[in-house]
Design a protein around this nucleic acid. Structure first.
Lengths: 329, 329
DNA sequence: TTGTGTTGCGGAACCGGTTCCGCAACATTT
DNA sequence: AAATGTTGCGGAACCGGTTCCGCAACACAA
């Protein structure tokens, strides 16, 4: 089961190594030689040694993907999309997990560079100076998903716009006393854009809003739901920054015997699969994670081929009006 | 930003390449030389070129992980566990997705071998002759998670035992008319072991069982739930082979206005996070996916170090008695 | 026929490490 | 003091590819 090398092929075909290499890489090779090599290579089912290739070329067919966590719906779906597209185009995905530590993102940028990945797709949470510095230093195309920065190619969800659209819809339905449950501002896209999109719609309608901050964890949202149970009657709608938060809030409300949407309405954001299948199904915004992954892979390959790619690209979004938010009028 | 090579180091320190290499790999080096090299290497922050190393050694510090899908709860959690452990021990995880195509599993076994991964962790669904053949051929340690076979090191969930334990519990609660919603037998662990574990407990109590087959997809379970709504009153319990199936069934029942657990009980299997946070929370069996991942990584490293590892290892399980199953007595 | 251009191919160097071998310097034993 | 053993180090080959350069063979125009 020993490796067949280019040297073996050369000997079997009675030519020089260099000729075999040229044959493989589409250089000029005579007809007779080509046919001989065709045969020999097929017979031996030769496969080039990737290390030798990479050693020389300082390149691989790998795209590094930096994800904040492996067990998030958004990340999983995005990875699927990336993987599909890359596999199809002859590249491989190399996933690295940062376990939500910003420091490790930077570390991994350098690390992936060391491994000579052809490009890096980064599912970002925050963009700091040190990130930019790393990106600058490694001299490898980087594509940012989910966050944006002028200096980095980015593929971003229309958080502001989508939040605003969903919020406006709620206003049209007559909600005037709402609580917004969001996350930290360090996450620009979710913590700021998304929130501001909602707030804008609420303000324009002169609604009453209170903002509460929590984390991305379901558990942390449960007590919030429990507390908000006391405000049933005055507050008519709880808007959550993510579907997971909505899930926690719903649980907290249920723990207090509150019924959704009869007693109070709750909305999510993200469009995770389970939102549809829950009872009540959750009104939310669907973001195309998987297709965004494919798109990202596609853009990355364009970058690698030197084609022009806009610095900032927005994805689409889709309102999912379902059961968890009541129309008051 | 050019690579610093071992040659550069050698020149700066005034020694031969071979001496530097020996220094790096713990060979015999004199005190004076060692100190000089200490300094030079620190100053240049030299990093060895992995391709050159792998080219020579025909080895990498990568462990390939073959997963059937990227967006499954079980797979994600397992990957997390694997990744944590590997990272800590200086290895890297290389995930490859087979998109549930058996054919691609085999392909990837060979492919990972070509990439000279040190070992392969395989989250299996079915084990065929061709798989075994591939494993035999590639001469790389393979560790199977979630399924078992005598010829392959495997780390498996106690499906039969856990199912039996949960089923027995239900019997104790007085359920005598149950429907089991399972999956295809091609998946030995889930399709057979799990089912048989349940059936055994039901039979021992002389309960009435009907078995229905579906897929792993949530959507496919919804119509089943809807149909079973007609049997409320006669059937008292629906046992589902996975939490996702339970989710679908619950949705189907809810669509028909059936209340769980008042009208009928439903149980899951797997212990996905969301089962706890749903309303009603789902009675299920918790399987330690993440810890199993860590354990798998650990075992793999043992295998690589030539230590003895038992051919078959079972994980623990834990019954999660919650709201979705009623105690009839 | 000579000159010019094109094409096909071999040889050698190179990518950046590791490892084998042999030699010199020094320490130890008798 | 000679014989033997140990240690530190350099040189060269090797891993398996790619690429540059130059030469030979052939085709074609002059």
């Amino acid at each position: 089961m020993k490796q067949v090398t280019i040297k073996d092929i050369a000997e079997l075909a009675g030519v020089a190594k260099s000729t075999v290499s040229r044959y493989l890489n589409g250089g000029s090779v005579g007809k007779a030689t080509r046919e001989k090599l065709d045969r020999v290579i097929r017979d031996t089912n030769y496969e080039p040694n990737q290390f030798a290739q990479s050693l020389k070329s300082k390149q691989t067919k790998m795209i590094g993907v930096i994800v904040p966590r492996l067990d998030s719906y958004a990340a999983s779906r995005t990875m699927m999309g990336i993987d599909e597209q890359l596999t199809e185009r002859g590249y491989q995905m190399l996933v690295v997990n940062t376990a939500q530590q910003t420091e490790r993102e930077i570390e991994q940028l350098y690390n992936l560079a060391k491994q000579k990945v052809a490009g890096i797709i980064w599912l970002g949470t925050t963009v700091t100076e040190r990130h930019l510095e790393a990106i600058e230093a490694i001299q490898i195309p980087v594509l940012l998903i989910g966050q944006q920065h002028d200096n980095v190619h980015s593929l971003v969800y229309p958080d502001h716009e989508a939040a605003n659209a969903l919020g406006s819809e709620f206003m049209r339905w007559g909600h005037r006393n709402v609580v917004y449950v969001g996350v930290s501002e360090t996450d620009i896209a979710v913590g700021q854009e998304r929130r501001d999109g909602f707030l804008k719609s609420f303000q324009e309608s002169g609604a009453n809003v209170r903002v509460i901050q929590t984390t991305f964890k379901i558990e942390d949202a449960i007590p919030i739901g429990e507390q908000l149970a006391d405000e049933v009657g005055t507050v008519s709608l709880i808007v959550c920054a993510t579907d997971n938060i909505a899930l926690g809030v719903l649980k907290g409300l249920a723990n207090q015997g509150i019924e959704v949407p009869n007693d109070i309405s709750v909305s999510g954001f993200g469009g995770y699969d389970f939102t549809e299948v829950l009872h009540p199904s959750i009104t939310t915004v669907h973001l195309p994670y998987r297709r965004t992954g494919s798109k990202a892979a596609d853009m990355m390959l364009q970058l690698l081929h030197g084609e022009h790619v806009p610095m900032k690209t927005f994805t689409i979004f889709e309102l999912k009006v379902r059961e968890s938010v009541d129309k008051l009028k």
